[in-house]
Design a binder for these strands. Structure first.
Lengths: 345, 345
DNA sequence: TTGAAAGCGGTACCAA
DNA sequence: TTGGTACCGCTTTCAA
């Protein structure tokens, strides 16, 4: 049914080898032969069979991407940035979602490896780096994005999470907050980095917060909104109550926002709030949410470029490369507070 | 590097044919041979090379999906529903986004065809059905989702859009609205169906609205929020002003909401608002938005099943099949109005 | 029940 | 500059 090189070759009275060379513009083909071949290829709308090509070259020109949740705008943006770059270079992106489930992530990794992707790009939800050590043994290169593992020397593209924590905390201080709490995330690099940034700014400013001002999520099944809500309720019981809360991510901040409003308090007057991720809806909420932007599309683009450089390197494997993007604060209503009283008492 | 059938065969002193048959559990293999082969496959973690398989069978077990925008939660949910079904059947989904751009959609269609997907699933942004006629000539089957084309007999999975329009309009009437406007979408089946539903309910109820109560979007570049905002500003100038607005989709409703609040009016007291799509953030907005749910995950699942039935049919092509899912209203704050005064004047 | 041989549609290598 | 030949890893057909 489909047109093959053989057909083109027969029509033109040349060999398939010649057609093949034209297709990959090998230098050693006469200009007029090349023209004839190209003309016929266009006429028949010929497209080389990728399976045949992959079989002999050992490369599929497919790149696998695994994200925890495609519905989360952050990862959808990352995917978009990736596609944009890969499209130009004629690679195909195979997108999978792990639904925040490590077992499913492992399954999807195996699927993509079975499909023989040239490289894997993963925003992992794994608790350990074991899966990646296995991938290494197997020989397929990979790039981690967003989250990484301490002690695993792997290619990584993400944001500087400590800086995220610093920016958010500093922003709350600038907004006049003095009792700053943190709703932290699970035991993964992103959450740990943000927590470290939070602590660093406080100590640099000589501020001391009670340890209970850092609240851990109960479970990590949800994207963050449920645990954010629960964590905020804990904070609301404290005395003195915090007047500023830095949330691990935007969904958690949305949950926290709901809890505050339910308690009859106001944002930002009673409690200011800042999240992380600057997801698409941050500006549309009941109180538009300040957030630390992580340049999701940028992460995708940089990951794509790194992946391509690894795949197309002819020399032995490139040394592990780390790309850290700089986060920025996007200030909205939820931290728009009147300047603090000059000399209160 | 990778393990091949040949290796298994050599290790066990059988032929590759035998291994191949075991792999696809052909009946004509002795039980003990089968065991030995399976054991060795597991030991070596052997995975058949899909390229080699595709080359000889002519089928890739890959299914292409093209959506207008992955960041739009509606399509992300559709993709999720699709994956869930396909995963079980050992098909791989290749997801592409057209970024709402017909030219890019055409490009992605060509890419996926060049990759030899077994079938294509498309939520199209094309103005005409021309691209699909071309696909038909080329021989690859396809399924349309969400949007379809009048006069094109193709497989389709979507929601009953007239019913969507009816439900939304009826809901506004039930909320006590009497001057009901519609911010409509572009000239595609979804928007046209919803408009038709709006009109049908009004005429069935004997209500007549001024023609200016139906506002068209200026451009269709954006997801709907910008045009929704602009359209609402037009409606706000009218006299009498509408007291209920049915928006083509949720982003448009979000834009409309913003415009109303900016004008110093209240939702739902002054103007009630309902959207379509029930996207993930509908409940989190400044005024939680009522919306007509379209069961996005259900669309994905049904599309997957339909696609599989087409791909795995041995008999001649199945007749075009249409699956219409029933929409439902999700009522939130934006239409929570006090009952209308019994006998006003 | 098992396997030898012939491809599937390309690419790599080397000779003409 | 061009092309013959030998594969890539698997499935299909048919004979043993």
């Amino acid at each position: 049914m489909a047109v093959r090189m053989k057909d083109i070759a027969r029509d033109l009275g040349v060999s398939v080898v010649t057609v093949s060379k034209v297709l990959r513009n090998h230098s050693d083909i006469g200009p007029e032969t090349r023209e004839r071949v190209l003309k016929r290829i266009k006429e028949l709308n010929y497209r080389p069979n990728p399976a045949a090509r992959a079989l002999v070259t050992g490369r599929t020109r497919m790149i696998g991407l695994i994200v925890p949740d495609l519905v989360h705008p952050f990862f959808a943006e990352v995917a978009k940035g990736l596609s944009r770059v890969l499209r130009k270079r004629d690679y195909t992106l195979m997108i999978s979602s792990s639904e925040e489930d490590p077992a499913l992530e492992q399954y999807e990794i195996d699927q993509l490896l079975a499909r023989r992707v040239d490289i894997l790009i993963v925003a992992s939800t794994q608790p350990t780096d074991e899966a990646f050590r296995r991938i290494e043994e197997q020989g397929t290169p990979y790039v981690l994005i967003d989250r990484r593992f301490a002690g695993l020397a792997a290619h990584f593209v993400g944001v500087d999470d400590e800086r995220v924590g610093e920016l958010a905390t500093q922003h709350l201080i600038d907004a006049g907050c003095r009792r700053i709490a943190h709703i932290r995330g699970p035991e993964v690099s992103t959450a740990l980095g943000r927590l470290a940034g939070y602590r660093r700014v406080l100590s640099r400013r000589g501020l001391t917060m009670p340890p209970v001002y850092v609240v851990s999520p109960r479970s990590s099944d949800d994207a963050g909104d449920v645990s954010g809500h629960a964590a905020m309720k804990v904070l609301l019981e404290l005395s003195p109550r915090p007047d500023g809360v830095f949330c691990y991510n935007d969904p958690a901040a949305v949950g926290a926002l709901t809890a505050i409003l339910e308690a009859g308090l106001r944002v930002p007057e009673d409690i200011a709030l800042i999240g992380c991720g600057n997801v698409h809806y941050s500006g549309l909420l009941r109180v538009p949410l300040s957030s630390v932007d992580q340049d999701s599309a940028g992460i995708g683009e940089r990951a794509a470029k790194l992946a391509l450089s690894v795949v197309e390197a002819k020399s032995p494997p490139v040394r592990s490369k780390t790309v850290l993007l700089a986060p920025t604060v996007v200030a909205r209503e939820s931290t728009r507070r009147p300047p603090p009283p000059k000399t209160s008492r």
